[in-house]
Nucleic acid binder design. Structure first.
Lengths: 205, 205
DNA sequence: ACCTGAACACCGTTCAAGT
DNA sequence: ACCTGAACACCGTTCAAGT
């Protein structure tokens, strides 16, 4: 109902943050009216996020290995958040309690268990870690992409300039630290790193 | 100079966000004057964060193993960010270019290399992952602690209520997912998880 | 040349007053 | 009972006008 209008708003001027006032304008009313339906801005964003989550492919045919499926799922989730930075913040600050979010968690749980994690506790930590990492990646990427070329140049210059003997290792590695592949590659690698860390090694080759 | 005043401000009313206007008020001037010294609010926060980072213990006596030392370093870093949420956001959105931040990165690099990571690329990813995770943890924890008891109750109720057969695994695990220890324990475990994942296993017992 | 008051364009949230 | 205009208490940033 109200979420649909919110989607229209973030679609129309997506680069702006989603705000109560802009949403209210879309609905031809005052911002105050929205507080009948949502507790506050963060909850509004959580609702919108849940709606967006409906787009995720949450099927699992059992052909893909848990690792492979987890990888694809997380990649899709991160991409979704990157495409909607206004809404992504909510995922860091509250546990969205919508149905689609629960669907996502449910699939994560099943995949992790299928992947061989035995203890309930460990499954819970893993879900937490994976979701948190996804959100953090998305927020960082989407913000950094706004960072002007200027900003990057400044940074490299700082590195080049300030290194002499206070930061020998940093100096030696130089700018390799920042140019470690595209964002896509970095996301790829971080997901692999985490999954390898979390899942026990497969018992057969 | 200007950063000191900012510290006073966030010390005095730390629960509020640090803003240009509040800082300007502290300095008995208008907010506009600050733009002579800092590019924007994010950069201001980056400056303050760098100043705070000076408090970190960045020594390494070589007695602690790299793993142990990394663990302590990250714990301290996360705690620092948690204590200053207003400033922590900056760490997610820009690479602070201050000296103390570079000091931190330098130590991280040395510890990771000493821990046995051979390729420069892998060291760079590891630094990225560890810093990003720390920031994300801090933002999540500091925000979540503001979450009223009400919020937690709501969440548990949602879980209890909505589970029947759409989310069987979630239902089975129940509230164990959220009550997996205190924040301190969770931080502890996530750090260990990441370090174990990142560092190669020690060659001797 | 340097600094800044006032203005512009926004926010989230509340609440008294209307229908 | 339901809704909302207007108000309150804030933001970041810019720029013309002052010293």
């Amino acid at each position: 109902v109200i979420v649909d209008a919110a989607l229209t708003v973030i679609e129309r001027d997506g680069k702006h943050d989603l705000s109560m006032r802009r949403l209210a304008a879309e609905l031809d009313t005052g911002a105050a009216s929205l507080y009948v339906y949502v507790r506050n801005t963060t909850h509004l964003k959580a609702l919108v996020l849940d709606r967006l989550l409906a787009q995720l492919d949450l099927s699992w045919d059992g052909i893909d290995s848990p690792h492979t499926r987890l990888h694809r799922l997380l990649t899709e989730y991160i991409d979704l958040l990157i495409d909607h930075p206004a809404v992504a913040q909510a995922a860091l600050y509250i546990w969205p309690d919508g149905q689609h979010y629960l669907d996502l968690v449910e699939l994560l749980l099943n995949l992790l268990i299928a992947g061989g994690i035995s203890s309930n506790e460990r499954v819970a930590w893993a879900v937490d870690l994976l979701l948190q990492h996804s959100t953090a990646c998305a927020l960082e990427w989407s913000q950094r992409s706004n960072m002007s070329q200027q900003g990057i140049t400044d940074l490299l210059e700082t590195l080049q300039h300030a290194d002499p003997d206070r930061h020998p290792t940093l100096h030696t590695l130089g700018s390799d630290i920042f140019t470690g592949g595209t964002n896509d590659e970095r996301r790829e690698r971080s997901i692999n790193m985490l999954l390898t860390a979390i899942l026990p090694p497969p018992s057969d080759g």
